[in-house]
Nucleic acid binder design. Structure first.
Lengths: 330, 330
DNA sequence: TCCTCAAATGTTCACGTGAACGAAAAGTGT
DNA sequence: ACACTTTTCGTTCACGTGAACATTTGAGGA
């Protein structure tokens, strides 16, 4: 209940105008050095903290950055959030996290919340199928899309992952090892990332002179459960698939879980190439091969775009190539 | 640049007083139903969003909840954040994340940021050795401590994990399997959790009539690197340890990494009992035994304490028992 | 019709900060 | 001493919202 220490209460305490206090705290050149010292000292004693509500109301930037992710349970998102949180803290930005579960309604709500607090920017993994009029919701904030693009938004920048090379390398690797029937499971066409990865996979098949008919392709919304289910449907189906490539973070873990639960030996029973390369892949079965996404680089770029100095409103699309890490499983 | 839609701009648009608009939006009983409908309709058309800065300045609760965690890279913290984020979203609370790296300075800074935005509450894993006058910083916010207690704070509640039972069960299990020399690595004495787990381990040794001299105990600040290093120091030392119990999230992963990198077969070369039971433990080496912490329950309780209805300012210490999950590694 | 009381709406103010402008104090040159 | 510039400090205002109080409108009763 102790009354808040404000610029005015300090002014009253020192018998001066609140503007002098304001100027002293803002390091304005137009204050007498002696006055500044007095004010700064007293402010520290009283434990003054600037009210960001007040400055926000004046129209100043809030420094609030929204982070919209499908979840934090998948290591990629968690590590990205981790990296971004540290970088934002260094810049004095406030990071507000909202999880969407890849659900348009949750996304919509999250953006509403960010508008309420007048967030300066959002870093988001766009949910599939978001309402078309969502764009209006962003009003003044800088929008940085991550991983996928959502065509209804008009982002300031999009930080995407270029998987063509690594998926191609994965198929090359499998083909060279003699695999004729390769399975692929990934995100469905509502996701830009899903479309691109699938296309890359198909092109790689062609390049390796493998008929698309020999491949088994399964696409779905991205989740652990779908990955699990799709993998099972391939394993239990009459497909004679000897190798599997995953095109999604959660899907990869789900598929891996399905394989291991069935007691499959990788790569003997199935050559497995996962996606996202979470740290624990190196601990499983002598190492799970997978496509590694440059998390730190993505977070670093996002933080750079968020910095007040850069604030390049139209950085456009920036792609970060993923890379294939071959271990024991393929 | 389109001017913000405010309560006043709507009032102007409709030719009425801003208070009528305010009342209509607040569902006050003292507005004519017809007026209310008109206002609500127009507000929706214009895309009105309440300014939480303005309400915050009036002294109303901001609904901002700070979450202070050591990191998000460890699955426990990530999953906790995940669960809490969803529960907070349901309650219309804003979740602001800060990572401390278990560093008092970062923690201090994070709390300063939360004071700036007038956070209503903080859920925090207290960093070891925080400055003694930090308590003052919390001013009016509800403080919920997680996992550990920080003696310099005066929390509204502390959600702790009672490990005595599970650590005891772990030692019992190992002793019954014939292990005479058991190693333990955990957090050092600056952490309440570290102290309690170590004490539980020592007591369990005694109960199993194992001399403390036969055990090898290593304590350090909690981190992957320290866990790795401590595990190596035991493995490379002249200790004849045949089993290892871990007492910390990151430490457990670090120790496991050390074992697997050395090519140890668990449990043949070393009986291993980890801590925290991240989901991937079941995929490694036929399953890593570990002490499971009830993440969802912790997050659920935290969310409950945050809810405006409960706001029990003094819930005191609430303990959640961890449990031992035995798989192949021990 | 006029009066009364309640319902509906309006006016003013505070919250904390900093821009814009105004006023006073201190220095400068003649 | 004077006028004049520069430095320093003060006053007022806006930002968006809702409590408190003031005012108007409308309904019901005599």
């Amino acid at each position: 209940m102790a009354n808040r220490v404000t610029i005015k209460s300090i002014a009253l305490d020192l018998g001066i105008s609140h503007m002098t206090v304001s100027r002293a705290l803002a390091n304005s050149p137009n204050v007498h050095p002696k006055t500044r010292d007095t004010v700064l000292k007293r402010a520290a004693e009283l434990g003054y903290v600037k009210s960001s509500a007040a400055t926000a109301m004046r129209g100043d930037s809030t420094g609030i950055v929204g982070l919209l992710l499908p979840n934090l349970a998948n290591e990629f998102y968690a590590v990205f959030a981790n990296a971004l949180a540290l970088l934002c803290a260094d810049q004095g930005l406030h990071l507000m996290i909202h999880l969407t579960n890849d659900d348009a309604t949750r996304e919509h709500l999250a953006i509403l919340r960010l508008r309420e607090v007048q967030a300066s920017a959002v870093v988001m993994v766009p949910a599939p199928g978001a309402a078309a009029d969502l764009g209006r919701g962003f009003s003044e904030m800088q929008v940085i899309q991550l991983i996928r693009t959502g065509d209804h938004h008009s982002p300031s920048a999009a930080l995407l992952v270029e998987d063509r090379g690594s998926i191609g390398a994965a198929v090359d690797h499998l083909a060279k090892a003699g695999h004729q029937r390769i399975g692929y499971i990934g995100g469905h066409a509502a996701l830009s990332s899903g479309r691109h990865r699938e296309a890359a996979f198909r092109d790689a098949l062609k390049r390796n002179r493998l008929s698309p008919d020999t491949a088994v392709i399964r696409l779905d919304p991205p989740s652990f459960e779908m990955g699990h289910a799709m993998c099972l449907s391939i394993l239990e189906g009459d497909t004679a698939v000897t190798a599997l490539v995953c095109g999604g973070f959660e899907i990869s873990n789900g598929a891996l879980d399905a394989c291991l639960r069935r007691g499959l030996k990788l790569p003997d029973d199935l050559a497995f190439i996962g996606y996202g390369d979470p740290s624990f892949y190196r601990w499983i079965e002598g190492g799970i091969s997978s496509i590694a996404v440059p998390v730190e680089e993505l977070a670093g770029k996002a933080a750079e775009l968020l910095s007040r100095e850069v604030k390049a409103k139209n950085a456009g699309i920036i792609s970060f190539p993923s890379s294939l890490t071959i271990r024991k499983s393929a």
